[in-house]
Design a protein around this nucleic acid. Structure first.
Lengths: 203, 203
DNA sequence: ATTAAATGTCGACTGCAGTCGAAATTACCG
DNA sequence: CGGTAATTTCGACTGCAGTCGACATTTAAT
């Protein structure tokens, strides 16, 4: 027989695996907790011993999905490329992954950008992983003189991220078709780097 | 007796008014459709003759709330002030209104930024009202030489709006306390206007 | 005025998220 | 072991969003 803790871990994994299978196959809305419980081989109530809400299960699912994205990113990014190019690669990769399933992406974005009170902590962790990915890129770009040195990495990240969110929003609202996302992103990123004001004449 | 159309309008209004009262008093989650129906003086099924989902009722409520915000905005904005100041006034006013009720604000933002398939059309209309408000401001600022002329008003609006969304997100994630929102907004707006790149030496 | 079609209204019903307390399992100690 | 405390599991139950079809009201045509 195994210790309590080991069993809990196995049960937890079984639930997440069932979620990955069912959410991927049928979507979040079309998967009921009871179905999930059956596939995971546990009772309905047990699920709620591991997760407080259905959305929290989604977050576990999202974390898994994010790992896949990050793996993809590391292999694609060239740390010596211009900052514009790197940022475009990162955010387009993410866009492509997240929007692979339209409904999943919407729930994921809503939850990430405007988290429930109960989810705030979990999403903070996810964000930290982003910073780990982006900060080194920013530092290198600063060294190469592509970015103003006095701007905080946090604020820089914020700018790009906010434009990414905007594009997602525009895509979900139908204002931008899939084919135009990359050019729109390039335009917005470039404008942010260059600034919106006219270049001052007196330097 | 009154004609059918008139009666429908009155019923519709009764539902919206009941929603305004109940959502404001008890919040969206704590208001059941049955309660709403009772207060509006109709049957539960009737509600669904006017709105397809509970969220759609929320949108009607939001439209009402938005009108209040716009009224507030028009009285506060000074069309001759610098673009930075005007944008700060507009988005801080909006921030203050939307976050007055934390839960309402979250649902409102989620719905606005990542709308459901069924709500896309309604939210497009809300956005148009924004453009009506912002485009003249941008045109004037261009005339005063505060913005690069070649940048589309739509893209300019997009930049500021995306930073506004970012701040909302940061607030809901607890990364920014209420007291620091205005200074953070000023910082981000200023950086966007000035650009993130070093000013090129060769003009 | 009569009647048939069209449009509105209603609340019982269905399905699912989340709760709860009783039952089962595991850990701990004499 | 034997017994008891602590933890975990379970599915019947509650409450609410949304559906459905029977019933009521309005319109329009004769």
């Amino acid at each position: 027989m195994s210790t309590r803790e080991e069993k809990k871990q196995r049960t937890r994994q079984a639930i997440i695996q069932a979620a990955i299978n069912l959410f991927s196959a049928n979507g979040f809305e079309n998967t009921s907790i009871e179905e999930l419980a059956k596939v995971a081989g546990v009772g309905k109530g047990t699920i709620y011993g591991y997760f407080q809400t259905k959305k929290e299960i989604l977050r576990a699912f999202c974390e898994y999905a994010l790992e896949q994205i990050h793996k993809d990113l590391v292999s694609k990014t060239n740390p010596e490329a211009p900052i514009l190019e790197q940022m475009l690669t990162i955010y387009m990769t993410e866009f492509n992954h997240v929007t692979q399933n339209r409904e999943f992406g919407r729930i994921f974005m809503r939850q990430t950008v405007f988290p429930d009170e109960s989810d705030v902590k979990g999403h903070a962790e996810i964000e930290d992983k982003y910073f780990e990915l982006l900060f080194p890129i920013i530092e290198k770009a600063k060294e190469r003189g592509e970015l103003r040195k006095e701007i905080e990495p946090l604020h820089l990240t914020a700018h790009f991220y906010s434009l990414y969110v905007l594009l997602m929003s525009a895509w979900y609202s139908g204002r931008i078709p899939t084919t135009e996302v990359d050019s729109a992103m390039e335009l917005l990123f470039r404008q942010t780097l260059e600034g919106l004001q006219p270049t001052p004449l007196n330097i």
